[in-house]
Structure formats: structure tokens, C-alpha cells
Design a protein around this nucleic acid. Structure first.
Length: 265
DNA sequence: ATGGTCGAATGTCGA
């Protein structure tokens, strides 16, 4: 089974890239973030033509997530308990979607787009920390209910957990994504037992998943590692390959994030 | 190439 996560930054603007990516990388299930459309606007036709099913969750033009699968898509859920809310009316955001893929021998795939946080003194930063805390509770509850659960929490976490996950810590002084509370919130999730499935195969610096459109960050190789696939303990020994597809960040019409791929055998 | 981003419910905001 080959699964991937990708912050697509508008699925409508890049649907051709998505279809090409699925086929080129032989992907069974893909978690998308920042689809930037409502489910009725989702370009499902070319995906169904390629043999995939789609589940999408989007309520506004910014956040919004989806799961695309050719190995089944069951038990689709749009929420987990305790996620804090943002905006008026009270529910205006769609940042999480989960589904069972691969049937009984498969896994529960959760696509999430963690709040950005904006600025350290902005209410959105507190919202982000509370959001991550709710994910931690969900991760802990999942493994408490079944220590052998097969589950992947993946997406754009908007946190760079280590200093070498950004190109220059000096640049990020006073900025979000690298603060200790954010890193503590990320670590609290991994301490439940869910682990970064890519890190063991690609330790160290320079393994980025995001490069800002501005300031030519990609050609300068000035990126951040903020997109993750966190796998439950039962899945960790099954990983046979994992990598970032940097090629998808190249050329005209690229998202500002590259997809991250994990293969289980 | 001496500057330099995108996308969307666009005329501005969020990332």
C-alpha cells in the first residue's frame, strides 16, 4: 500500500497535477489539505476516471481537506472530539477528515490541516495549540482503545519540530511554527506512540516539504518540514519506503508544498 | 533576473 499527503493549495487549480501524481507515484490513497473549495466544487470526474473515490470536507475558501482512494473509502468522519472552533458563525472551518482505506487489512487515514497560528500574539496561535491538544487526545484515545490500531494522522501540521526542519532558525525568531509551545504540542502527539514515518529514512537537515512562493525559497533550497505522516505503532515496522517528492514543487503551477509518500509492505 | 508569490466568496485577506 502506498499512501501520500499533500497540501495542494487549491485542488481546482491543480487537478491535472493530482491525477498525474497519483499515476506516476502509484498512490493508493492520498490525503489533501487546503483544497480551497466546497465538496460540490471538487473536480471528481478525472479522479473517478482514473479509478479513485473522493471524500471532501470544505466550508470556506481557505481550509478544507479531502481523501482520495482506489482501495476503498469507508467510515468517513469529519470531526474528532474536542476540536476547538474558530470564526463566525461558530462552525466555518473544515480542517479534518478521516476514512478507512484498504478495508479490514487497511488503515484509518486522517487528513488534517492544522491552524496556521498567524502571529505569536494572535488568538489564532492559541487556537492552534488547542487544536493540536485535541489531536493528541484523539491519538491517545485511539491507542488506548486498541494498541494494535492501524492508523495514520497526516497532513500540514504547521509546526517544524526540530531546528534543522527550517533553513535558518534566525529567520524564524519571534515567528510561529518553531516556538516551544508548538513543538511541545507536536511532541505530545508523537509521545502517544504515533511516529513520523519519514524521519527514520531521512534524518537530518534539508528534508523539507514546504517552500514559500515568495523570495524564491525553492530554488534557494530554503524550506521547512511541516507536513507529516504519523503512523501508529502497528504500522511503523511495515514501512518499506518514505520520501518527499520534490519534483512536484518544480515548474509552473506547483503548490507551495510537495507531497510526502509512505509505502507499507 | 539587482527582483522576485499565490489563490479565492479577489478590489483584500490568508498563507
Amino acid at each position: 500500500m502506498r499512501i501520500a499527503t499533500w497540501n495542494i493549495n487549491s485542488v481546482r487549480a491543480r487537478i491535472d497535477r493530482v491525477v498525474d501524481f497519483l499515476e506516476r507515484q502509484n498512490i493508493d490513497a492520498l490525503a489533501l489539505q487546503e483544497i480551497k473549495c466546497k465538496p460540490a466544487q471538487f473536480p471528481t470526474a478525472p479522479l473517478e476516471e482514473a479509478g479513485y473515490e473522493v471524500a471532501a470536507h470544505g466550508l470556506n475558501q481557505w481550509n478544507g481537506v479531502a481523501i482520495i482512494s482506489r482501495i476503498g473509502l469507508e467510515d468517513v468522519r469529519q470531526e474528532i472530539p474536542g476540536l476547538p472552533q474558530w470564526g463566525e458563525p461558530a462552525v466555518t472551518e473544515a480542517r479534518l477528515l478521516s476514512a478507512r482505506v484498504g478495508g479490514a487489512d487497511g488503515l484509518t487515514l486522517t487528513s488534517m490541516y492544522v491552524p496556521n497560528g498567524r502571529e505569536i500574539d494572535h488568538p489564532h496561535y492559541t487556537y492552534k495549540l488547542e487544536w493540536l491538544a485535541a489531536v493528541r487526545e484523539h491519538a491517545a484515545a485511539t491507542l488506548a482503545a486498541d494498541p494494535q490500531a492501524r492508523a495514520v494522522l497526516c497532513g500540514d501540521f504547521n509546526v517544524a519540530p526540530e531546528d534543522y526542519d527550517v533553513w535558518d532558525m534566525g529567520f524564524f525568531a519571534g515567528k510561529t511554527h518553531v516556538t516551544q509551545p508548538e513543538r511541545d504540542a507536536f511532541r505530545a502527539i508523537t509521545e502517544t506512540g504515533f511516529a513520523d514515518l519519514v524521519r527514520p529514512l531521512h534524518p537530518g537537515e534539508g528534508v523539507y516539504t514546504f517552500w514559500d512562493y515568495q523570495q524564491l525559497r525553492f530554488p534557494k533550497r530554503q524550506g521547512m518540514k511541516i507536513d507529516f505522516l504519523l503512523g501508529s505503532p502497528a504500522l511503523q515496522p511495515l514501512v518499506s519506503d518514505a520520501y518527499v517528492d520534490r519534483d512536484e514543487r518544480k515548474g509552473k503551477g506547483a503548490s507551495d508544498h510537495a507531497p510526502v509518500i509512505v509505502q507499507f509492505d
